[in-house]
Amino acid sequence: MVRLSKENGLNCVLALALLAAPFVATALDEPFYITLATRVAILAIAGVGLNLALGLGGLVSFGHAAFFGLGGYAAGILASHALNYEPILSSPFELNGTTQMLVIWFVALLVSGLAALLIGFFSLRTSGVYFIMITLAFAQMIYYFAISWPAYGGEDGLSIYVRNVLPGVNTMDPISFFMIAFVLLMLVILFSSMIKNSRFGAALQAARQNDERLATVGIHPFGIRLTTFVISAMITALSGALFADLNRFVSPDMLAWHMSGEIMVFVILGGVGRLFGPVVGAALFILIESVFGGISEYWMFYLGLVLLGVVLYARGGVIGFLAGKEKHD
């Protein structure tokens, strides 16, 4: 029987609150808040991705914007070719774009997975501050490449005129689009929980605690770290693809270092390694942005204060503060 721990109870409340948000917004005739709730769900997916690497594996990646942006550009490039009826490739074979979300997600996962394999292969040979710097460096390389690539808008970015399509769902309807993001968020959280409670998850956490000890029981820490890094990147790319669809716009900003920082802030605010930490973190971030952003352009100052408070007085993030120290189910 599943025990309902304090954290599980809190997680259920959080999931229900997020699910209810767009419906409450509709009832109050405030459709803007549906978009905010959708942003929370989408950015939380990016946080769940990073949380796997950072929270479980102890991999402080400062380059996850690369995967977020790659997901976004996968959506943008495929959709813009399809909408303009221009093939991506005409020889040796014709390759057309698509507006099908399922295909776009698949491409986003594939491209980011391959990129993460390459980036992780080199980055994971380092640790600590070197790992942070090398992941940042890779992300910045992709960022500057996007800026200097005029075919897809360069610095100006790339517009997607119509939201991509998912069979049986009207993606232009804000609540339907929110539901797509929400369902995907729940799925990645479930997947993340399965990893955390699996043998692989135990080995990953063991690798964070002691490499050498893990090697003496026959597990190569590099292999499980690389696998985690790739999975983490793929989840973040899925978020990027959805984010591109939400805004119907992709720009190099999605690849910039401050995006990596934002994703990390979601995780730290909510609680590193906590299942719903990124959901709370993203919600708090967007709440502060929308509330204080309307009052002052220096809203990041207030975000900084909250982050400072969490780091100094609530090391387990908001989830840790509310649900206490992590307990295994």
């Binding site: 135990a202 080995a203 956490q205 063991a206 605690q209 026959g218």
Partner: peptide
């Protein structure tokens, strides 16, 4: 592995 449970220590490897 100090921050893993007994069960996790046993199944990890």
């Amino acid at each position: 592995f100090p921050n893993l449970t007994v069960y996790e220590n046993l199944i990890a490897a």
